[in-house]
Design a binder for these strands. Sequence first.
DNA 1: TTAAAATATTCGACACTGTTCAATTTAATG
DNA 2: CATTAAATTGAACAGTGTCGAATATTTTAA
Lengths: 198, 198
Amino acid sequence: MGRRSDHSRAELAEMILAEGHRQMAEVGFARFSAREVAKRIGYSIGTLYNVFGTLDRLILAINSRTFALWSEALRARLAAAEGVDRIRALVEGYFAFARENSNLWMAIYDHRLPAGMEMPEEEDRLRGGLTEIVAAEVAAALPEHRREAAPRLARSLVATVHGHCAFALNGSFALMGEGEPVELALARVREALAAAAQ
Amino acid sequence: MGRRSDHSRAELAEMILAEGHRQMAEVGFARFSAREVAKRIGYSIGTLYNVFGTLDRLILAINSRTFALWSEALRARLAAAEGVDRIRALVEGYFAFARENSNLWMAIYDHRLPAGMEMPEEEDRLRGGLTEIVAAEVAAALPEHRREAAPRLARSLVATVHGHCAFALNGSFALMGEGEPVELALARVREALAAAAQ
DNA sequence: TTAAAATATTCGACACTGTTCAATTTAATG
DNA sequence: CATTAAATTGAACAGTGTCGAATATTTTAA
């Protein structure tokens, strides 16, 4: 075969992904360039396309990695919040990751699948993973006789916090004169949990 | 002057804007092309840049127009909901506009101002206008001794509904198995209003 | 060891994109 | 009509994603 020295196919894919992820973090979705990624790892643009097939699949893989890191960050926050306010830890962790990785976080929502291409299974699983973390905490925050409401409520609370986080990062809240988006989101989450509890 | 037949400068700007808005509605932010807009109105690309200066300013103007239409649609819904459930009318109107104009609605959030360029005053005013509509309804839904809480609560509720709407349109809710995002958002809004009322 | 097969990689070509600006056309004015 | 001023053009530039024929490399078979 024509493989170059010591890079297996999987290792090459990993190189591209790692450099792509780095690039996305640095310049963001709008300025992301596959050619630039290829240049930085010392391969030609053609090789990149041979490995990932299309730009959309590469971006999908990059966003998957971001999702994995995000879930990991949330789990770490929760582990460190043993006993204390776990709901607050969750909401603050959500915002903290988005703020500290704004380009990566926004790229998740900047990217749209082209018509006719559906989400690969692994991506789907990863995104569901984050919701499951929230669902588990929501369930724990509810009295036992209300636990069946947890999955649907979790979806809604993720959307609620997402909305506040998106407005915080894109400047909408700043334009409206809002300075404490995290507290605002947390208040909404608390109300919803309290309402679901009884 | 070299102006062509019967088009004044303002009329030309309006032509570009109208065609740009049409294009954005048809193909969406990612496939939007200034060249294509110029071609469709029978002017060269250079003229378009002479009028709007930069692509960002054109997109900003297009998104402004969308905001104006959105506010108008909400006002119309509220006017038709005399006496009946105005909060429901507001939430359903929010979703309806986004769904019926998904490319235009998403373009508002797809576009990011380049560093160093701040939001023109007219845009700022238009966006604030939408929040004011919500703030007025929120105030009306609260007892008098709680009215001062309306502006901040309104910002939060807009963010809440935005989050649910974004997930509905980008397919996140579908992937999570959620089929009724509007009802979900409405439930959160009702809870927040009830909590703020007492 | 050598020839053949299989795989990896490259690179140029294509059709786009936003952006700029000297040259040109058009209309209004003296 | 000549001049001036404004509007408009379109070529040039540096990018982009995408594709595929040609090339290079490695593995396998003889």
